[in-house]
Design a protein around this nucleic acid. Structure first.
Lengths: 219, 219, 219, 219
DNA sequence: TGCTAAGCGAGACGGTACGTCGCGTCTTCGG
DNA sequence: CCGAAGACGCGACGTACCGTCTCGCTTAGCA
């Protein structure tokens, strides 16, 4: 999340403020938390309109009614700001705990599909970051932890739940399988720009995951 | 390919010269075809060293012993040049005709894996283009036709060959399945930056494609 | 002078900032006045070394330790920058007040000749601008107000002082006469590239101005 | 004039062809003399419309219906072409032989003033060359020989004629005086951009030359 | 009459400067 | 000390023009 001086607590996530992460607390005006959200809001707006490359920090700041310094006090680079755009929101990501146990993998997958998520937006914003990743291991790590990681974790959770039920075929490569949906979605959004529609999502479950995991697409 | 005045024949691939693609054929010094290849060569070199974002047109030109104008006479933008980098070469892509019929899908897949291809380089160069795609349908089209398309076509070919042999399960979504390997490779290269090693390629075949297509991963 | 946001006061000389000359005064970091002088300094240096045509804005900026943008924020074109080079400095120009009344026109002229001035430098810098003047009435006006105007004003002042003494012949065309030295100097510097040496300056006074003004070159 | 391979004779004037001035005579198609005049014509046109800096060789060539190579085969640089523009024509320059002896310097000067000449055009074209002169002694020499030289020679001739008549005051600096009109005209055309009208020309004669040369402006 | 070397229109080529724009930092205010 | 505003150093972008080179054609003059 943002690299806030604001506390030192909130923590866990990762980034830091370059200007004295911990300590230095005494005088001065505290950070205005509304600026964070305004800026993220503006960033999402501009990203949606223009895409990463054509988005300028200056415009984000202007739309947020903020100065560039206010932006850079919170995020070290445009890329990091955009990342937070993906996840701050932020309970947008579905976790295994959000998915009711329907009694079958097929049911669980259907349940997930029916849950609204902002994933598409996340992927979209990721588009422009792709080219930054090779230069920045940290960025790569963050993207994987926050954007693609949670999806794989969810998938793995569902597969393990199925395994506990005895649904899984022996010898299924869970690790690999849990990456398939993310990869297919990324492929469409980044490369072919085909839509991620209901039918596509259905066939990911029915034609790929279920047969691989349980050996049958129908019964 | 390049947006050449060169003729009107040469190809049916795509790009054009902004300066009168068709017509005006007569006078003037003809384009020097060696410049095209020198520039593409240099572009590939620099891209490999620096990645898309950190590559400058000026450096490409310099390494090619060319002027910037000579580059821009052929490609309207850096992005278009990089695209041609991906494919002009260009028989790097494996087609169904290159793969001997081994008598089983498993064998065919193994044969493909053992063939060297420049695909990794193509994907690498694609990295920087991802962010340009949403702004340019033509670019998207070209990338799909030349970079990811051929892979899917190859895969579909192998699956159809298997189908002819009677290997395929009924109800297999060939269209979707043929995209899986590309998607998984793209995902690794673009997003997670994990290596595309022998083991990964093996498990793509053995743990994903074969089970989905033929219903068994071993026998 | 520079097209400064700086205020609206500072001067009444001429040029403006393209970005809101008047108005918009409040926020933001103010222009750093030292950059103006550093840049002008560097510009004078490079101009002296290379002449107008071979002077590069990039080099001026580099020598001033500035970015090109900082230069272009202040002057819209190379030509405008060079103009300011001529006059910002700037009390280089001799005015009638600087010349002691020696009691005779001849003495006054000798006094002026003995005063060091940066005129040569001004003319030199003007060289490259000549070709821009026809396209820019403002430029022409500025050049005349700041470079050649002051010389004519000085000359006219001296002639009027002589007239007050009763030295002048009746019917002398003061207006025309006051332009003669400037014209002769310009001619040498711009066209024939002969040096402006002591002898030349002497003969301008003794062989042209004095005979014309007072009717005698010697007594 | 042009640097013609054409002969080696025509001569006298100055420039040469870089490609074998003398020698190599045998085969090949001879230069087409109409191209010279067409190009000069076009050059004059464009120069008049745009001024030196904004004139491009490509446009001159295009208007002349010529190729750039045809231009550069005749003139080594844009500057040299423009110079020829000034003088090829070319009996435009008035020489002492063209001026009838009216019996007095005043009369001779009036006679000269009444003769149409293309001088203004010459000066105009010279405008853009000014900035090239410091870098090219040859250019400077040529300009002086062809543009300003003839004017000074004419003036000196008139003054010498007056001297032969006994009109001249003793101690007149003929050399300097003969440069005054050129200098004043150059000053107006290059620097102040005031028109060279009838009144100005009259006062050059009556208020400057005559008093200086003969000691009286009227009698 | 047919050969040949050069001229010619067209425009590509290697360079180089232009003026613009974006990033991430720094500097002044006022609150 | 925060926050708005925006200037700053840097450096890439894509354009334009210079003077040279190269193509395919045309056009003398010599054989």
């Amino acid at each position: 999340m943002a690299r806030g001086t604001s506390s030192g607590s909130e923590a866990g996530t990762g980034q830091e403020d370059r200007v004295l992460e911990a300590g230095q607390r005494k005088g001065g005006r505290p950070r205005d938390a509304t600026r964070d959200t305004d800026i993220l809001e503006a960033a999402r707006e501009v990203l949606a309109e223009r895409g990463y490359e054509r988005t300028t920090v200056a415009e984000i700041a202007a739309r947020a009614g903020a100065g560039k310094a206010t932006v850079y006090r919170r995020w070290a680079t445009k890329a990091e700001l955009v990342i937070d755009t993906l996840t701050c929101g932020a309970s947008s990501t579905i976790t295994i705990g959000d998915v009711p146990d329907t009694g079958s993998l097929r049911g669980d997958l259907a349940a997930v599909r029916s849950m609204k998520s902002r994933d598409a937006a996340s992927w979209q914003a990721l588009v422009g970051l792709i080219s930054e990743l090779p230069h920045s291991p940290e960025l790569t790590q963050v993207v994987n932890e926050r954007v693609v990681g949670p999806r794989a974790v969810l998938m793995r959770g569902l597969l393990e739940r199925a395994q506990a039920r005895g649904e899984l075929l022996p010898g299924v490569n869970v690790e690999l399988l849990s990456r398939v949906p993310s990869a297919m979605v990324a492929y469409r959004l980044l490369v072919t720009h085909e839509p991620i529609d209901r039918e596509f999502r259905r066939s990911l479950s029915e034609d790929l995951i279920l047969p691989l995991a349980t050996g049958r697409s129908r019964d």
